[in-house]
Amino acid sequence: MSTTTTFSDEVKARLEVDAKEIIGRYPQSRSALLPLLHLVQAEEGYVSAAGIAFCAEQLGLTKAEVTAVATFYTMYKRRPVGDYHVGVCTNTLCAVMGGDEIFETLKEHLEVGNNEATEDGRVSLEHVECNAACDFAPVVMVNWEFFDNQTPESAKELVDDLRLGNDVRPTRGPDSLCTFKQASRLLAGFADDRATEGPQAAGPSLVGLELARERGWAAPDPDDLPPAPVLDEGEGETK
């Protein structure tokens, strides 16, 4: 963990170019604060004192103002996470479907607690709240990519592969994982070129559509609408 409170001149010069671009997207500069925090997290793997000082300087804010924001949001980390940050959903639905068992298994297997990284710095573990993939429960995220329908065994295999440097493929995501720092850069608004990789939709996302196709169901034909129901204007009734 860096103990200096400012970035080196080289880092600063490089990030200033990015910061200028980010600030330019917004009608008012302060709107750039969240992406700038993602940007400094992309540099160091967490939001350090130097990162906070950088954001403050770019936006003309005090370090206290930036710190107040950085500490409000769960995704900004105050200590370095692993290259691969593993989030296990333990909100009610995933927990009931097996997320609790997956989280316990991974804590034991990796010998880490919540929000801790393995000694080699490869993998960190956190329990996360609902990640909007409930129809794929139980869900595990790695660097904010979806690993759907997990079991304790599949999750163990996943983190073993991450530690060994083997390729792993998200179930609904690009062909391989980027690192936590690279993920943070994307969140700062700098796109990589992987948007077209991976499936458009999978499994549960398609069950309704497939059933509709099978049964010949569709939304009404706009050129052949059923007659509108005649409202019963019963005698003597007033609104």
């Binding site: 458009q200 939709a201 996302s205 309704g208 559509l209 509709a212 049964r215 169901w217 569709a218």
Partner: peptide
């Protein structure tokens, strides 16, 4: 049993095209 209400895919109607996001 056939439910009385049928599904009406509108926003999801192209999701089974592999390139639906382009």
């Amino acid at each position: 049993a056939q439910p009385a209400t049928a599904l009406t895919p509108v926003l999801s109607r192209n999701w089974d095209r592999p390139d639906s996001f382009t």
